[in-house]
Design a binder for these strands. Structure first.
Lengths: 341, 341
DNA sequence: TTGTAAGCGTTATCAA
DNA sequence: TTGATAACGCTTACAA
């Protein structure tokens, strides 16, 4: 019940100093004599002072809030990214206001308005719902992750290299036909690079390949059904041939693997599988899945690094507006496990 | 660059009203004439006003912030719970300040201090690091989820019933021996109920059973190793018998299943497996896993329901302090898939 | 129905 | 090295 309502005024009264001096104790202690510092320190303990940052925000305009908009936390990629972003608190001290948007532009706009109303200093978004041009107009530092990023700063995995790595690995294991399954990704989304990387390696090496750009469904059941149909298709089209399949992510790669396992009790010699992300499912699969790993922790840290420097710039007397968005590319790491030779 | 610094004062000047009237327009519009409402509405558009909630917080003391402390986002159970909690924004309007603690008490205390400094109105914690007695002393409404909860309100799955459901299902499928693997959980943690429920069913029905209370390791590799050793142990101790195994969670149940699959190319007839949580891995396993499902969305909503009523109580003129913590129990849902008959 | 004035808890500016 | 005083943007009595 004795809600701690001790303020600078109380401390000032208690110590005989002014509120200003108390404020200085917190923000520039060296400007006080050691003796007086001690007096105030003692008073803080005696009165059981708890800081109130709201007053500081109002007076200084600095909230130390960063907004995060994330499509969902269902996919491990997103939850782990959030995990890593939250972990940067130790390094940068920014607090995170988190919204999980569900890809509806009007909803996300509402979230952003709300975040802005709390004077967030920066925004990190993993959602591609709102065009970067619109985000840039909000006039707050923004960093996008794995989304269209023409007008905002961003951090992305080197998707092209990921596609190259996957195709190269499949090439090495002497597949007769390389297959890449993915959805039909717009060119301005970073993930599109995977397809290009895969195709380029195939073309350069004159490897037979097939690109299957199709939507695998929104539920697990749909995934299962459509991937099962794909297996039928492969069996029919390439009987007896060694098929190297690069799936769009580990979740789908796992479904693919399970279907083969259920049919054959093992991974047939005629299949090689590689996923994308290095999410937990890739290690927890019946047979550990080979995958192109994203360096989530590195991405999260780079994002905060870019954001914090832009936020710092704004605090200067004469902030120099960013002329060009910064785009950082993080290399993926090929992880060879048991579904490739 | 034209950072919107339009305030109530500007609107007041523009419209000829006082700041108070502008404030009323937002908080109690009906107290203005329709005509004047319209005037102000027009001014808002003309001036491109953006609300600033910091001033409101300072003046009213109401932040509409709820703090969340979550052990990690790596385990699906936690990330999905966070997901569902964040989703309550639509219903309650509270914004969430999220910290991912890593089970270090001093770190978590720092997080709580920080949250308190921002005047959070309530706290939801999924972490059991700090004793409920200490949390209760912070003098802010707290709801715990699946953690020790003697001195704080809480929402938990009916773990006892979960244990009962698991044992009953294994009983129905005529197992010769029922086995429950779990860690040695302190009695005051809700999850301990699972063990009791399991044992009670076995005792009441005079079913042979074995309780294996052991730590399965902190990494996936350790899990794999120790669970593999368990399988050896089962084979040796109960050769040819039909073993019904209740694992502590889906992740471990999946590891168990994979080991059997790798050894036998299928789930042998002598095994029945049931997990706990109904996390995605249970459906994505080689063979869909039977599991005791936690109703995460229900839990999240109940938690916010309890919290919001306690927060609302505090806003009353003469708030009546909660005499007794509220404890809500959510029944689990048994999900029968292919690892049980 | 509307206005005045006094806060809310800090920081910033200027002066001493 | 310290203090007085005025912000910061809004809410809330109390008046009118």
């Amino acid at each position: 019940m004795k809600s701690n309502k001790v303020t600078f005024a109380d401390i000032a009264a208690y110590t005989g100093f002014s509120k200003t001096t108390i404020s200085r104790y917190f923000n520039d202690p060296d400007s006080l004599t050691l003796e007086n510092q001690q007096k105030i320190a003692d008073a803080l303990v005696a009165l059981d002072y708890k800081e109130n940052k709201v007053g500081r925000i109002l007076a200084s305009g600095k909230t130390e809030f960063v907004g995060i908009i994330i499509p969902n936390l269902y996919l491990h990629y997103y939850s782990e990214m959030l995990n890593q972003i939250l972990a940067t608190y130790e390094k940068y001290g920014y607090k995170f206001l988190v919204f999980a948007g569900n890809a509806r532009a009007d909803v996300e706009r509402k979230y952003i308005e709300e975040l802005l109303a709390y004077n967030i200093e920066g925004l990190i978004t993993l959602s591609g719902t709102i065009p970067s041009k619109e985000l840039a107009a909000y006039n707050v530092p923004v960093v996008g992750i794995e989304r269209e990023d023409k007008y905002i700063s961003s951090v992305n995995t080197d998707n092209y290299m990921g596609g190259v790595q996957a195709a190269s690995l499949l090439k090495k294991s002497d597949c007769d036909i390389l297959i890449h399954v993915n959805s039909d990704i717009p060119d301005d989304v970073p993930a599109a690079g995977r397809i290009k990387g895969f195709v380029d390696v195939c073309e350069e090496n004159a490897l037979p390949y097939e690109l299957i750009l199709t939507h695998l469904g929104d539920t697990f059941e749909e995934n299962r059904e459509r991937i099962s149909a794909l297996v039928d298709q492969f069996e029919e089209k390439y009987p007896g041939k060694k098929k190297g399949v690069f799936m769009p992510n580990d979740t789908h790669a796992n479904v693919f693997l399970n279907i083969l396992f259920q049919r054959y009790g093992k991974l047939p010699e005629t299949y090689q599988i590689i996923g994308f992300d290095n999410s937990p499912i890739s290690r927890e699969a019946v047979i550990p899945l080979s995958t192109v790993g994203q360096q989530i922790s590195v991405i999260a840290n780079e994002a905060m690094d870019i954001l914090s420097s832009q936020m710092a710039e704004r605090k200067k007397r004469r902030p120099e507006p960013l002329k060009e968005p910064v785009h950082k590319i993080i290399p993926p790491i090929l992880i060879r496990r048991e579904t490739t030779a």
